[in-house]
Computed example of a mutant assay.
Amino acid sequence: MSAARLLQAARDKGIKIAAAESCTGGLIMAALTDIAGSSDVVDRGFVTYSNAAKYEMLGVRQATVDQHGAVSEQVAAEMAQGALARSDAGLAMAVTGIAGPGGSEFKPEGRVCFGLASAEGTQTETVEFGAIGRAEVRRATVAHALAMMLRAVS
């Protein structure tokens, strides 16, 4: 999946993009802004690694984290909705997950929850990348997020 293809598709539709990133720490926005001319599509990114940052910057509710955990589709949805509401973007992607090493029997290493918000609503999904190593989980997360956004704007 090419970030350049996503940028062109968003440009063609007149859509700006925002991202709220936890486990990727800004890598989605880095992939997009590595491409010259991306400033007409990329609005802003939020790196919300801590729960406090999720609450303060995106408006994620502490009750949602308490009930479902930070790595959950519910939190990914609220992150995406918060990024959409706090930006000039028409499409906001959010990711929260366990890149590793570590995890638990309930939240294993390699689990990433994705949220995608637009004026049409919010969709979520969870991908189990497995214990493939921290760098590979983060790389796979970026690729999956870019592909989800491309499908949304195509």
Rank of each mutant, 00 (worst) to 15 (best):
A143I: 14
V75T: 08
Q74K: 14
A10M: 08
A85N: 05
R111N: 09
V42R: 03
R134M: 02
G121A: 07
G102N: 06
G115V: 11
S87T: 04
G102S: 02
L146W: 14
M29D: 04
S118K: 04
V47Q: 05
A131E: 05
S87W: 00
V47S: 05
A89H: 01
S154N: 12
M1N: 06
V95S: 01
V41D: 09
H68I: 07
A3W: 10
K54L: 00
G133Y: 13
D40E: 14
G133F: 07
S50Y: 00
A131D: 09
R5I: 11
R134H: 07
T64K: 09
S72W: 02
A52M: 13
R5L: 14
C23I: 07
S2K: 15
A4Q: 03
H144K: 14
A80C: 13
G103H: 06
A3L: 10
L116T: 09
M79F: 04
Q67P: 02
G97D: 01
S118L: 08
G100W: 08
G121W: 11
R138H: 04
F129V: 12
M149N: 08
S22F: 05
A70I: 03
C113T: 08
I28P: 03
T141K: 14
G103Q: 05
A76M: 15
V127H: 13
G115I: 11
V75I: 09
H68K: 05
L146D: 12
E128F: 13
R5T: 11
A135D: 14
I35H: 12
G133N: 12
A20V: 02
A9P: 00
S50R: 07
C113Q: 01
E125S: 15
M148L: 14
P101N: 05
V71L: 01
V112T: 10
S87D: 01
A20T: 09
H68Y: 15
G100H: 03
G14H: 03
A30R: 12
Y55C: 15
A89W: 00
A145G: 13
R44Q: 01
A80F: 11
A31F: 12
G115A: 10
M148T: 11
E125F: 11
A140D: 11
Y49Q: 09
S22C: 08
P108V: 01
V65L: 11
S39V: 05
C113S: 12
A147S: 03
K107H: 12
I98H: 04
V127R: 10
E78Q: 15
K13T: 00
L116H: 03
R111T: 08
R139W: 06
M79G: 00
D88L: 13
V60H: 06
M93Y: 07
G37A: 10
C113N: 08
G110S: 02
R151A: 13
R151K: 15
D34T: 05
S154V: 15
M29W: 09
R44K: 15
R151Q: 10
C113A: 07
E109W: 01
V42W: 03
A4D: 07
A135C: 04
S87I: 05
R151W: 10
A119V: 02
R11H: 14
R61G: 08
R139P: 01
D66F: 06
M29K: 15
S22A: 10
L32C: 02
D66Q: 08
P108F: 04
A77T: 13
S39F: 01
L150A: 08
A20K: 08
V42E: 02
I35L: 04
R44F: 06
M93D: 01
